[in-house]
Amino acid sequence: MNSFFKYFSEIFHGVKSLLTGMKVTGRYFFSPGEIVTQQYPENRKTLKMYDRFKGEVIMPHNERNEHRCTGCGICETSCPNGSIEILQAKIDMPDGKKKRIIDKHIYHLSMCTFCGLCIKSCPSDALAWGQEFEHAVFDRAKLTKILNKPGSSIIKDIVE
């Protein structure tokens, strides 16, 4: 008798779970507003990428052309395929000491696998993900980018 009830409860549970699944797909079918596909070349003007999207590595600058990079080189050592090169410079401080700053932060986009280890390992949060994704160019040299803008300096309150 017990197995008799088990047989029917199995059928009802099976039907119930199948109907739950059909409810989901049925709702999607009748609500075309939920379609997530982007009509890319047509909506290029209005396309807005998501914050999580990994387009390229950028170095954010504030409005006074200041960045947060100290030139420590941790991103260079943590990059698994050597797409980052750090060129450092020494400047004379007012108190007579010499200080190490970044000269050029060279980023080879052509070698980058977008793993994000440089961004994760940066101690001063100088790097971030950019949302630009149209990287096609006619010359390979254009894929080598210098991330710190010319004439930029470090934000004063950064301590190493």
């Binding site: 797909t25 079918f29 939920e34 379609i35 997530v36």
Partner: peptide, 8 residues
């Protein structure tokens, strides 16, 4: 199939 999978 596309509409049921939220595609076009």
């Amino acid at each position: 199939c596309a509409f049921m999978q939220n595609r076009v």
